[in-house]
């Protein structure tokens, strides 16, 4: 695969250097059949170094998950070799089954069938709170 020429697919750009494997895992890219290119430590005028992930298939990706991991990532949608849309991410207000509560006193640690729900509590500090017990989780960056 020529990594510069995704025909129909998605390019995740401006990933903080070193974070690409974490995103690979969260987005479950290992389960895909299509070609996926991971570029580490690419030169970036804005960031110095950055990671890039190129996915050669127009899959649906969970923008909430991505926004939670890093809202500064840009998502380029490629169609017939052309950039057709640049999506900017935001911290999602609500995360369902993305992260799990680590508070041992929380009901969700006992009853695994419950949805793990987190709500954005402080956009500045990028913190979330468990909807059940209010335990705090920070976004990765």
């Amino acid at each position: 695969m020529n990594i510069d020429s995704v025909q129909n697919g998605i390019v995740l750009d401006h990933i903080k250097a070193g974070a690409c494997m974490q995103i690979y895992k969260y987005l479950k890219l290992d389960q895909l059949d299509c070609q996926v290119a991971i570029i580490k430590n690419a030169k970036s005028s804005k960031m110095g170094k950055k990671d890039i992930i190129k996915i050669d298939s127009p899959i649906d990706i969970d923008l909430d998950v991505l926004g939670y991991i890093d809202p500064d990532i840009t998502v380029d949608i490629i169609k017939d070799g052309h950039l057709v849309e640049k999506k900017h991410l935001a911290l999602p207000q609500k995360l369902v089954n993305v992260i799990h509560c680590k508070n041992p006193r929380c009901i969700t640690t006992d009853e695994k069938q419950l949805d793990a729900i987190f709500l954005l509590s402080d956009p500045e500090k990028r913190t979330y709170r468990c909807a059940y017990c209010e335990a705090e989780r920070k976004s990765h960056r």
Partner: peptide, 8 residues
Amino acid sequence: PKEGAPFA
């Protein structure tokens, strides 16, 4: 006894 049980 568990936090969040009434919310659940």
